[in-house]
Computed example of a mutant assay.
Amino acid sequence: MFSRFKRMLILPFLLVGLSGADIVLAAEPEPMDGAAFDAYTRGKTLFYGQNGQAYGAEVYLENRRVRWSFLDGQCKEGFWYEQGNQICFVYEDNPDPQCWAFHTENGRLIARFENLPGATELYEAQDVGEEMVCLGPEVGV
């Protein structure tokens, strides 16, 4: 019993003696800045997934313009800009910016929604090198 008590007293002193270099913690990946994001995405059509399911696709055009679809044939035009460590998107139907932190992991893009941390994380499913299908505007008879 005394030896267990003695070890409990020594343990905090051992931990205090460790330097920061001795402790390796898994660090959060460094988010992409605007230049890196633009270089990675421009000219591509990327399809995104979430939890093994298709989520949506985005076409990345010149001058930071984008076209988004939830893969329902309806497309939204928009643009993106860099704000701190985030890439923010504004679409024609919503003036409120949708901000994400992007990084690459295992050769694909990962996006974490910053407007509601922990709520949405998307991963690049593929770059199909094709145009996204957008239906024309709905018209009545």
Rank of each mutant, 00 (worst) to 15 (best):
M1T: 06
R4G: 08
K6D: 04
K6F: 14
M8K: 10
L9D: 05
P12W: 12
L14W: 05
L14A: 13
L15D: 02
V16Q: 04
G17N: 01
S19K: 10
S19L: 10
S19V: 08
S19M: 07
G20Q: 09
A21L: 13
A21T: 05
D22M: 13
D22N: 05
I23N: 05
V24S: 04
V24G: 03
L25V: 13
L25Y: 11
A26M: 04
A26N: 12
A27Y: 09
A27Q: 14
E30V: 08
M32P: 01
M32Q: 00
A35D: 09
A36P: 12
F37L: 01
Y40L: 10
T41V: 06
G43D: 01
G43I: 10
T45R: 13
T45D: 08
L46A: 03
L46E: 01
F47I: 10
G49L: 05
Q50E: 10
Q50T: 05
Q53I: 06
Q53N: 14
A54P: 02
Y55W: 15
Y55D: 08
Y55K: 07
E58T: 07
V59Y: 00
Y60W: 14
E62R: 11
E62C: 07
N63F: 12
R65S: 12
V66M: 02
R67M: 13
W68M: 09
S69L: 06
F70D: 11
L71Y: 06
D72N: 15
G73V: 11
G73R: 02
Q74S: 14
E77G: 08
E77Y: 03
F79E: 06
Y81S: 08
Y81R: 11
Q83E: 12
N85E: 09
Q86D: 01
I87H: 00
C88I: 05
C88A: 04
C88G: 06
V90G: 00
V90T: 07
E92V: 07
E92H: 10
N94L: 08
N94Y: 10
P95T: 14
P97V: 11
W100R: 02
A101L: 12
H103T: 09
H103G: 03
E105P: 01
N106Y: 03
L109G: 00
I110W: 04
I110V: 14
A111S: 12
R112Q: 13
R112M: 03
F113M: 09
F113G: 06
F113N: 04
F113Y: 14
E114F: 00
N115Q: 09
L116T: 15
P117H: 10
P117I: 10
G118Y: 02
G118W: 04
A119S: 15
A119N: 15
E121M: 10
E121R: 11
E124S: 07
E124I: 01
E124V: 07
A125Q: 11
A125C: 00
Q126W: 09
D127R: 03
D127E: 07
G129W: 06
E130W: 00
E130I: 10
E130T: 14
E131D: 12
V133S: 05
C134Y: 00
C134E: 04
C134S: 04
P137R: 05
P137K: 09
V139I: 13
V139E: 15
V139T: 13
G140W: 13
G140H: 15
